[in-house]
Design a protein around this nucleic acid. Structure first.
Lengths: 144, 144
DNA sequence: TTGATTGCAAACCGTTTGCATTAGT
DNA sequence: ACTAATGCAAACGGTTTGCAATCAA
């Protein structure tokens, strides 16, 4: 496998400790991570790092195809590895709990339908879907 | 049907021209509208209105259950009438075009599956789904 | 009259930018 | 030595806030 340094060199980008730390953080994360969290973690090892460097590195990584971002409801942009195992986020609008569904097969027929009916090739990975979770539905069957 | 004024009075809220104009704008809109657009439109009829009044009115309307908001990819929060006909947004990440799908039956099996498998009662109305539209797929079958 | 609502200005948060300095190549 | 990358500070866009003035009740 190509080392991170190789990938950077390949596109004429330089290998700096800041970059290495940011990249390491994101790639070490299972699931989503927000820029502020990356900044906080990297700051521990490299206190002089600036937030803008984190943002710039995230842009770079996305251009390189190593990571992707998603907008999950309110709050900041969430980043995840491009090869992160796909999953749906079931966001409960009552208790705000987020259930992750790793088995994307639930969505496959839906994907197929969108492709056949509208020619739209959608990406169901990392999709956030709002609704009510089981617990909340049992606690109060109708209203909030 | 209850007049807007009745609904406001019912909860002890006052009926101001600013509120009436904002509410009128949102309710007159088919589909989504962003706060800035509401501000721009209302400003024409009521130049002294302030953006914060628009934001405050939107919050009020949402509390009253008349409108809802959604986060469709980047950009500001989008508002729509609570009784807006449901639709999916197919957002193409190549050309940024948004195709609206009014027929929610495409998603019904998916909804059922989530309900049965995870007890999650999801709201597929106004959901934004990322992917590639037909035109972009034909123009360049694989990469962007 | 009086308390809810407004406009204003200032703050907020997440993010981006221009620029001089630093440091990888 | 060359120039990409950094840190800084300042700006950004979207949104929220505290406050005194206003206005619907």
């Amino acid at each position: 496998m190509d080392s991170l340094a190789d990938l950077l060199h390949a596109r004429g980008s330089r290998v700096t400790p800041q970059r290495q730390l940011v990249i390491q953080q994101v790639l070490a994360t299972r699931g989503h991570i927000v820029p502020e969290a990356i900044y906080a973690k990297v700051s521990q090892q490299f206190p002089s790092i600036n937030r803008s460097t984190v943002y710039r590195t995230l842009q770079l990584l996305e251009e390189m195809g190593l990571i992707q971002h998603a907008h999950v409801e309110e709050g900041s942009t969430r980043y995840h590895r491009a090869d992160d195992p796909a999953h749906l986020h079931l966001v409960c609008h009552d208790c705000n709990a987020v259930q992750e569904v790793e088995d994307l097969s639930v969505g496959e027929p839906f994907r197929q339908a969108l492709l056949e009916r509208f020619g739209f090739d959608c990406d169901l990975t990392h999709l956030a879907i709002a609704g009510r979770c089981q617990a909340c539905r049992q606690r109060a069957p109708s209203g909030p």
